[in-house]
Every structure is written in C-alpha cells, then in structure tokens.
Design a protein around this nucleic acid. Structure first.
Lengths: 191, 191
DNA sequence: GACTTTCTTGAGTGATCACTCAAGTATATA
DNA sequence: TATATACTTGAGTGATCACTCAAGAAAGTC
C-alpha cells in the first residue's frame, strides 16, 4: 500500500559521514546536508529525526568502516604487518574527506560542551583501541613482538601516535608519510 | 582629553583565549564572550573589531605562552630534559582550559573551510616545531642525542606525538601521563 | 480507477548568529 | 567649569540556525 522512499538510506548516511567528517558538527548546516543528500527538510526529518541523530549514524558508519579496513589488512598480511600498514594507508587515502580522524575531531569539538556525541566518539575510539590491543596480542603469539610488553599499553600508545599522525597529516607542509613510516618502523623495535 | 578604557586589554585577551581554547571557534558565541569579558557588543567591537580578530590575538597569546614555557624549561633543565618534561607538564596542567592543543583544535575545526585562522594555527605550529628542532640540535651538541639523527625529523615526530598525546589527554579513561612518560622515555633511546 | 498509506515539498517557525549605531556617560584639557 | 574626546550602553539589524507542518504527489492494494 505505502510508497517507498526514493533513496538508499545507507548511501545517504555515507554522504552525510563524508560531509560531517570534513566540516565537523557545527561546520555542517542543514542547508549543506540538504544539498548533498538532495533532500528537503521534511524528508530529512522524516528519515533521520535530527541532525544529531544522523551524525550518530554517520559516526557509527565511520567507526565500523575503520574496523573493517583494519580487519581486512590483518587477514591479508597478518597482525604485525596490519599494524605497520594501517598508518600509511590512512595517510595515503586521498579519497577520504579529511586526513584527521572523525572521532577525534568530534571529540575535540564537542567535549567542552559535554555533548553526547563527544562521548559516542570516545566509545568508538575505545573500541578501536581494543582491536589494536588484540592485534598486538596476536603479534606476540606469532613471535613478532616480545612478550614482555603489555598489549594494552602498546595499543594505547599506538592509537595516540596514530591520532597525532592524522592531525599532522591535516596540516600543510608536513610529510605525514614519513611520520607513518617512523611509526611502522617503531613496531619492529619491539622485537 | 579622552576617556580611558576601564579594562586591561591583555587580561581580556587571556580570558578570550581560555574560552576559545576550551570551546573552539564556532562553539564560542559573542554572547559567551560578552559574559566572560564583561563587555557589551559596542565596547567589544570598538576594542577588537571582530570575533576573528580577537581569536587571532588569543591564538598569538597561546602560541607565545607555549614558547615561553618551553624556553623556561630549557633554561632550568637544559635542552634534553626540557623536551622530556614538556609532554608531562602539558598533560598535568589542570589549570588549563583544555588538554588538547588550541592550535590543533583550530586547525581541525577550520581547515576544511579554508579559514585564515586555520593557516594562522599552522604557522604557529611550524614555529613551535622550529623551537623543538633547535632543542634537539642543542641536545646533540650536549651529547644527549646521537648526531646521526636529523633534528628536524626528530622535531616533526616529537610534535606529532605531542599532538596525539594531547588529543588522548582530552579523552576520558585514558592514562595520558603514562603516554607522556613513554614519549619522554623514547628520547633516551636516541642515545 | 478508488482508496489508503507513505513520501516529498517548501514556505514558515522562533531562536540565535555576528555585528551596528545612536544616545548617554565619564574623563581629560583648557 | 566648559568643552572636546573618547568609552559604554543596549536595543536593534538582517542573516542564518535547526526544525515543523500542511498540502500535494506517488505507489501499493482492492
């Protein structure tokens, strides 16, 4: 009986993610979204409820995509190589709307306002850190990293370095690829 | 003949810096500034011209303060110790409006809009990187770092790690002091 | 084709944005 | 004390913010 929407919801969320990722929360207006999503306000609010609700969906998509890219890297090259390649891959991805991490951008923008989206971002970062820790654990089992190291400590530092790298990559005149290579190289020194 | 303003301009800029640092550019409204600076719009615009102009002044004060803190650290403990203490100092400064770097926050928020303030932020970061490089050079002269390393490469990496640390410090549930200690410890491994 | 149900449209909502300006007030010199 | 010169005040500017809603259009069932 009813009429179907004439859009692909997932694709809309991806387009919103790219816009939010690039411009941030306050930097993206509903007018911007209307243009990119080709939607009038009425349809937008019927479909997503609010700007924040769509941002939440966009951030979820961002986070799961990141985890999947890491997983794919691990299945192709194994844990230690995945950890070594990931920084380089992130920095060299010219198709991405921004070099910096959407989660850290959101956190930095909204943390001072105690905005729920900042907490969401932190949770996604925590989850990612957990995946890094798991890869470090696997790398230890494979004998690529000495057992004396705590995988969670390594993951915490790795994520911090990655966030720094991605801020640096957002800058003009900084050789981010070189920094990515140094991070990768540092992992070989963990025995 | 004229009447003098009843405020200390430098102190107003400091208060504005703290607010901008914490809340970001878009996150700080003129109403917020009116409250914190105790100024009505007319006085505000007579004194500073625009929100952006005040932000520029605030960012300059932020940058020079950072450089002075680094210099003070160097004069008290010497170059290598200064580089080792700086991350810890930044992370442990509970009086600061935010843990994250105001320059990186500004860059991430405004880079996509090609806002002049994003370029300003990048220039300040470049200048700071130069100071780091100088300290690395001095540490080499003092024999604390092997001469095989390029000071500018070390500075680039150091700043990237520092930016990552400060993003991490902004998060809940992350032991930033531990990361700061690891960064400091890493410098001892440069011979 | 009639009817039901949902989607789409786009003008319009009050709130807030950065910013202006005319009027009033305080302080210096003459 | 009179006057000139700023500084301060705060209501008001148009623009834009996220969001609403009534009306019309499309797609499914009968």
């Amino acid at each position: 009986m009813p009429r179907k929407p004439n859009y692909d919801r997932d694709e809309l969320i991806e387009r919103a993610r790219d816009l939010f990722w690039k411009r941030g929360w306050a930097g993206t207006s509903l007018k911007d979204l209307e243009v990119v999503l080709q939607m009038k306000p009425g349809s937008f609010y019927a479909a997503f409820g609010s700007k924040d609700a769509l941002f939440t969906l966009a951030m979820e998509k961002y986070a799961t995509d990141g985890r999947e890219r890491l997983k794919a890297l691990e299945q192709e090259h194994g844990p230690i190589k995945a950890l070594q390649c990931f920084p380089k891959m992130v920095v060299e991805n010219d198709a991405a709307p921004a070099k910096a991490c959407m989660l850290s951008k959101t956190l930095l923008e909204l943390h001072a306002h105690s905005h729920p989206l900042a907490q969401d971002a932190n949770l996604h970062l925590l989850k990612m850190e957990g995946h890094f820790a798991e890869l470090f654990r696997q790398a230890q089992s494979a004998g690529d990293i000495d057992l004396s190291h705590d995988p969670q400590v390594l993951a915490r530092r790795y994520q911090s370095d990655l966030l720094g790298l991605r801020v640096s990559a957002e800058r003009e005149g900084v050789d981010a690829k070189a920094i990515a290579a140094e991070i990768a190289d540092g992992l070989t020194r963990l025995q």
